[in-house]
Simulated assay, not measured.
Amino acid sequence: MATSLPYLALRTFVEVGQHGSIKAAAQALSVTSGAVSQQIRLLEDRVGMALFTRERSGLRLTEAGAGVHPALLEAFERIQETLLSLEQIKARQTLTVSTVATFAASWLVPRLGRFNLRYPHIEVRVEATSNVADLRRDRVDVALRHGLGVYPNLQVTRLMAPVLVPVASPALVAASSAIAQPQDCLDYPLLHDSERADWSLWLTAHGVAKDPRAERGSAFEDDFLLIRAAEAGQGLALVPVEYAREEIAAGRLVQVLDKPWPARFAYYVVTRADAMQRDEVKAFVEWVMEEAQGTLRSCFANSPAIPASSQV
């Protein structure tokens, strides 16, 4: 039968061997000198031999004690290093964030470095999925979701409405009639998201009468697919300006009119009701709200005010 190791006695032995003094070892261990003497006697009784020679100047390791002291000292140093590693792991907090791939790639991930600089002890794990996460089952701390904000039994905070701009490939607009006002977009094939609502809302918001041509055209489930179709010259697309910024800068797309407008749906921060009690969740939510406000200020710095009726 295995017997338990006399951990305290071995630890005391190491300290006395290092300091050569009962009193100094007691101070290092924050115990009394009597307690140190007792542990040394217990260990010597356990191994059946003397480990120290008592001298007027203190204690000196015997040949047996000197033979095992270096290995025990190294072992306790490694134990101390292991405990320190565990403390560091405990101090490092992990946060799992779930959102759709387009939002993660075009908006969240490019900004995430600023969060890491502000909170280096919080490790963020981003899950890009189009599925609505079950926060408890999937162990998700924060979900950034695109919709109408209806998420029962969860805490929901409106983040921002994507700012839509009309874009097209340079070749398409160069080969056709000029686009000088929103009405002119109806002379082109229109590309839609899966809801097929944004073009009608955008045209109405800019004073264009209801027109059946606003409903025609191909529809795409993902904004990246919508952008790729526009790049291929298949028609005009209304896309979030953040998603198309790189393509516009590279000349693969052009913004055909300076008429930004909020999408019908908005992005929401979704958490469990008790999640905000955790410091790392609270820090991330406050940071992402701050970033969203910066995005909105940038997008609408030179655009007309948004009437309340257009907000989600």
Rank of each mutant, 00 (worst) to 15 (best):
L86V: 12
G294K: 03
S21Y: 03
G113R: 09
A305G: 02
K23V: 13
A209Y: 06
M49V: 13
E231S: 07
A263E: 10
R252M: 01
A128P: 00
D222W: 15
R60K: 08
A64P: 09
V288E: 05
P212H: 11
S176V: 08
Q93H: 13
A244L: 02
P152M: 06
T102V: 04
R114L: 14
E123Q: 13
R111K: 05
E246L: 12
L236M: 13
D193W: 10
A2N: 09
L296S: 04
T271M: 13
L108C: 05
G147F: 10
Q80V: 03
E15P: 03
L164H: 04
V241P: 01
H121Q: 15
G17H: 01
Q93W: 09
L84P: 08
V132W: 15
R78L: 14
L226M: 05
P120S: 01
A301L: 15
G20H: 02
H206P: 09
A250G: 06
L172Q: 06
L61G: 07
L86H: 13
W261C: 09
S33M: 07
I22Y: 11
A133I: 08
S98V: 06
G294T: 00
D193F: 11
A209C: 01
P110Y: 12
A237C: 09
L61H: 00
W199R: 05
V124Y: 06
S21F: 06
A237H: 10
Q88R: 15
C185N: 02
Y188A: 06
A209K: 02
T157H: 08
T157E: 11
V109R: 14
D141R: 07
A237K: 11
T99I: 05
W202S: 03
A249S: 14
Q255T: 14
G113I: 01
L186G: 06
R118N: 02
S177V: 09
K259M: 12
R136K: 01
E242N: 09
